[in-house]
Write a protein that binds this DNA or RNA. Structure first.
Lengths: 189, 189
DNA sequence: ATATTTAACTAACACTTGTTAGTCTGTTCA
DNA sequence: TGAACAGACTAACAAGTGTTAGTTAAATAT
């Protein structure tokens, strides 16, 4: 056998291409030629292009859900929980630089799994919001609009996948603590 | 004449569809039928699908460049400049909810204009970074990693287009000042 | 050594893509 | 009124799309 490719290889390469051009702009022939094989050969390992998107997005989304569940069940205070959420995002983003692009930009092309994905995302945001609102109640977090706080932190965390690869020198523990400090304490002196 | 469509109509509808599904997933037939016309009729007004993307992205990118130039030329202190940048983003995002999606997610499908776009973006980020570094030097901004500060603020501002439409109740002046406060002073009490 | 399985290949499919050519009808202006 | 034009239409194109069928050869199991 000239070559032996695995489903994992295909998914990884797909994620890389999906990040560069988006799901819709990547053809099965693009993907195959990047791997060094003909498009039809891919179908010995996967069932459809859709399946690739599903595998990429849902596995990451579930990792976020699991991480959030652990944080919600911990009895830390609100600021500690936020710190743990930052860690969670830094860790998942670092290990899924390519996949995060699909999660953020191509989720709308999920078909059967779209509703499931949207539920995971909504639940995640609801938990996040609850942590913030509790923090305000407990006087740990300043009395600002919780939606603006949620939006501001979550936007930053969701964009990590774009920045981590550009700053290879910054190690993840350092990034995580710098980020936590800036998000929580702000930047003013 | 049964109908009279303008290039502006086409661009607006295109931006809306590009936000929903991404540039590559929107066909000229999709676009035409949303407008209530046949695909070939679009070509009486525009020269190509590419042109639509260019018009949408470049016009917004240039508005950011102009806004940044005004801020750089003002002799405000660093914190004031950051406040003005927040306003700039809130204003442009509010007025270009759909187009901002293309700017953020479909810029890689620009062809002849790709280099130009990338130059505008890099210059913008360089100016932003300079403001932050000057702020640190002048003791207005805390001595943290300027790349992390830049990334954190800019990610939030670049995601505004996703949040503004979900929070119609929050008016833009209020949003702008809440956001400035959170980005600069943080969220801790 | 032989039989079975794995996974590549070529060829083709039905359909969709952006775009062009040519036509026809309603509007504008002399 | 009639000529010129604008802008819609139908029809078609060449190229590209995801995917399937059938074939072949290498790897593995008996």
């Amino acid at each position: 056998m000239k070559q032996k490719i695995s489903k994992e290889d295909i998914i990884k390469t797909a994620a890389k291409l999906f990040k560069e051009k988006g799901f819709s702009a990547v053809t099965m022939r693009d993907l195959a030629s990047k791997i060094g094989v003909k498009a039809s050969s891919l179908y010995n390992h996967i069932s459809s292009k859709q399946e690739l998107l599903k595998e990429i997005i849902i596995s990451i989304a579930e990792r976020f859900t699991e991480g959030m569940a652990v944080i919600m069940n911990s009895n830390s205070n609100s600021i500690d929980k936020l710190t743990k959420i930052v860690d969670l995002h830094v860790n998942i983003a670092s290990n899924n630089i390519y996949g995060m692009a699909s999660l953020n930009n191509d989720w709308m092309h999920l078909e059967e799994q779209l509703d499931y994905y949207l539920k995971l995302r909504t639940d995640y945001e609801d938990n996040f919001r609850e942590i913030i609102i509790n923090g305000i109640k407990n006087n740990e977090i300043k009395h600002a609009n919780p939606e603006v706080i949620l939006f501001s932190i979550l936007s930053t965390l969701r964009s990590l996948y774009l920045w981590i690869p550009k700053k290879e020198d910054l190690n993840h523990i350092e990034l995580s603590s710098n980020l936590t400090s800036i998000l929580i304490e702000g930047i003013n002196k």
